[in-house]
Structure formats: C-alpha cells, structure tokens
Simulated assay, not measured.
Amino acid sequence: MKSSLSFFSACAALCAVALVSACASSGPQSASARPVLYPNATLQRVGDAQGQVEVSGCMSRASAAGLSPSQSTNEVGRRAGEGAAVGGVASAVGALITGRGGEGVLRAGAAGAAVGGSAGAVSGAFHNDRPNSTYRSFVQRCLSERGFDVIGWN
C-alpha cells in the first residue's frame, strides 16, 4: 500500500512540475512571445498572414543583428547557491537545537545544503526565461518602419 502511495505522489509531483513549466514558458512575459499587431491600415491592406510573415522577418533581422529574444541571466546558479546556503545553515542549526553534536551537525548541514541547492536550482530554472527588451525594441522598430503598429506581446 505504501509503495503505491509513493508512486502516486511521485506522479502527481511530476505532473505539477510539467504544468508549471508549461505555464512559465509562454505568455507575454516569456522570451517566446510574439508581437501583437494593431489592425491599422497597413495590416488591413496586406492581411494577417502577410503581417505574420513581416513579424517573422523582423524577428529574424533582430537575431541576425546578434540579439536574442531571451535575456540570459545566471538565475539558476545564483538561486542554487542561495538555496544551498540557507538549507545548510538551517539544517545545522536545527541539529544543534535538537542536541545532535559534532558529526550529526555536519551531516545535517550537508544534507540541508544538498536539498536547498537542488530546490534553488529548480527555482532558478523557472525564473531564467526573461524577455530581452533590446530585442523587442528592435523588432518593434523594424515593424514600425514597415508600417505596422505593435500593441503588445503574446
């Protein structure tokens, strides 16, 4: 019975992580967002399909200029380090409070650092996908020069 409960818990946790990561990798605040065009005279004249071709062309131009849609950060490493420090210290202090001395404190600190570092790395991975404002400005200016109005990103 305990084995099936553990299996169910593991499956539920994996599903939750998949759902959260899917949500985190899309939307206007993600690096994978695309410009939304206002239906001005240019878009009405050329049509939605050609408007999307122009969007893709401007995005390609920005990439060719050396810009990336995502702003690279060291969020994963930074959060892993923070998590390891907090987890290690908290576990060591907890071991001291409960009366485990010497080697018990070291073991608890090491275990806490491992768990905290892992949790911090996962957290950092979810926060590492930031849009690059310079890339977005480039794409918007390119589209503006072609007669399109960008009203947001989706």
Results as ranks from 00 to 15, higher is better:
7 F>K: 08
78 R>P: 00
149 D>W: 13
3 S>F: 02
84 A>C: 04
89 V>T: 07
26 S>G: 00
107 R>A: 15
118 S>D: 03
86 V>M: 10
129 D>K: 05
139 V>A: 00
36 V>Q: 06
102 G>N: 09
24 A>I: 07
123 S>W: 10
125 A>H: 06
33 A>V: 00
31 A>T: 06
120 G>W: 04
42 T>V: 05
96 L>G: 15
90 A>M: 10
19 L>K: 12
58 C>S: 12
98 T>D: 07
115 V>M: 14
45 R>H: 07
42 T>K: 00
61 R>G: 13
136 R>V: 02
104 G>Q: 09
6 S>A: 05
55 V>T: 11
80 A>Y: 10
116 G>F: 01
100 R>N: 13
28 P>W: 07
48 D>K: 13
92 A>D: 11
27 G>D: 08
117 G>Q: 05
57 G>W: 07
111 A>N: 14
133 S>W: 02
103 E>F: 13
56 S>F: 07
41 A>E: 07
106 L>T: 15
145 E>D: 15
108 A>L: 13
52 Q>G: 06
96 L>C: 14
125 A>T: 10
12 A>W: 05
29 Q>E: 12
3 S>M: 01
70 S>I: 07
148 F>C: 01
53 V>Y: 12
26 S>P: 01
141 R>A: 15
147 G>L: 07
139 V>Q: 01
63 S>I: 11
47 G>V: 06
21 S>L: 11
146 R>Y: 08
68 S>P: 07
28 P>F: 01
43 L>R: 01
52 Q>I: 05
69 P>N: 14
67 L>F: 14
105 V>T: 14
39 P>W: 12
12 A>K: 09
131 P>L: 02
17 V>E: 08
53 V>H: 12
6 S>F: 09
121 A>F: 08
38 Y>M: 06
71 Q>V: 08
24 A>C: 06
78 R>K: 11
86 V>K: 05
19 L>F: 15
128 N>L: 01
18 A>E: 11
137 S>H: 02
38 Y>V: 02
97 I>L: 15
106 L>Q: 14
46 V>H: 01
11 C>W: 09
105 V>Q: 11
58 C>A: 14
95 A>C: 10
92 A>H: 09
79 R>W: 13
50 Q>S: 13
114 A>K: 02
130 R>W: 03
81 G>I: 05
61 R>N: 07
31 A>I: 00
81 G>Q: 03
140 Q>P: 05
143 L>T: 10
84 A>Y: 12
13 A>N: 03
